[in-house]
Design a binder for these strands. Structure first.
Lengths: 216, 216
DNA sequence: TCTCTGTGTGTACATTCGTTCACAGAATGT
DNA sequence: ACATTCTGTGAACGAATGTACACACAGAGA
């Protein structure tokens, strides 16, 4: 009651609203079922304030997709720094970084998993676009590291796409378990690692295998 | 206004309600955002009727999961009939059947894709359980056909799990395109086929590859 | 210093929601 | 034939929702 009604910083309420939406999603609510009043309530702000910052919930969702893009880029950067040499630990280290980021940005990845089959087409496309970008960057990195050099560009891109999808699907596993159920998280980590190993082994033998299938 | 208020058949309204929920989902709405009144309105029934048949929307969702199970089993049966010999067309034929069923039961698969990251934990687990069952059956079939006979049970199950996940992720691709955009559907079909080929090639070389990774 | 613009507040209203209740007509078992 | 049970109806409620409007106050530019 002392400092209410003050304007702290430009964009402060805006961030608070986005954060509140994410928090609700993190608590198990689905983004599509969130209402304007609900979000403003969680943010400790009057409903009208919402319209000062967003036109509707879809608008807010698109902003969240942008921020999600930043999170993904941070994750990619860390992976690039820590995983430089292409040895047999490449996959495991990358999965570790992935799991760590999911735990640190739990709500964002909740939102991402929901958005893939969400209500707003725009959000859906946005997330899909982020995944494409991620796959492309992954392909570039692998090229740079000299991994899978026998694959053509299209085939490498195909492989990376499958990798990203597989990892993305692991969200839905990860999100189902409590954040401190280490045993179960370890199990998901192992399983994801094996999935990726399976894919990479397939990619290693891809050309020949593909020719064999197509030749007949 | 002639025959209103008649009770047609037991469970008729019940089916109409489930069908209406699916229809709304098929129109792009997210299941989590559907309300009781909305569903009953779509079904051409008074809101109160809902409670005669379901306790709440989660309850209806669980029934839908059960029906989804039937759809999946039908799909599996057709695949078993039409894909008997394990030749190089196995994957393509299976993907064909899969695509055909998704198109024929569009709304169900919408619901499934949404439910994986949905609001109701019970529905989430139900869908997850259906996927596990599907993967197990797939593993049995492959065993019976003598495919991947060099893999241990655990590794075969791992492979099938990845296959099911990959196919499930293709839903979200398929659902984004118009049902009669044949060119795009064909593209998704091809891409999915290649994903599976990649996985199976990986599985073929799995033991050796795994040992090589683990041995060092 | 003064004005203007941006941002948050409070009030308000029509609409929609979930849920309850008493009632009516068809089906079912005896 | 009759009582019971099952299923759908209509009206009604209190609560929550989206959105509009007028107002208040802080900071930026003159």
């Amino acid at each position: 009651m002392t400092d209410r009604k003050k304007r702290r910083k430009p964009g402060e309420t805006r961030e608070k609203l986005m954060e509140s939406a994410l928090t609700l999603v993190g608590k198990g609510r689905h983004y599509a079922s969130l209402g304007i009043r609900e979000v403003t309530r969680q943010a400790g702000v009057v409903p009208t304030s919402f319209y000062r910052n967003f036109r509707n919930m879809d608008d807010l969702g698109l902003e969240l997709v942008d921020q999600l893009g930043l999170v993904l880029r941070r994750m990619m950067r860390e992976a690039r720094i820590n995983v430089v040499q292409a040895d047999e630990r490449l996959i495991e280290e990358s999965v570790d970084i992935f799991i760590r980021h999911v735990e640190a940005n739990r709500d964002f990845f909740f939102f991402m998993a929901q958005g893939l089959a969400g209500e707003s087409r725009a959000v859906q496309d946005g997330i899909r676009s982020e995944m494409r970008y991620f796959a492309t960057e992954l392909a570039n990195d692998l090229r740079r590291m000299g991994v899978m050099s026998h694959l053509g560009d299209a085939d490498l891109e195909l492989t990376c796409d499958l990798v990203v999808r597989t990892v993305a699907f692991s969200f839905t596993d990860l999100l189902g378990v409590s954040p401190d159920d280490d045993a179960q998280i370890q199990q998901i980590r192992d399983r994801t690692t094996r999935f990726l190993q399976l894919i990479f082994i397939g990619a290693e033998h891809w050309e020949s295998g593909r020719k064999a299938k197509e030749g007949v």
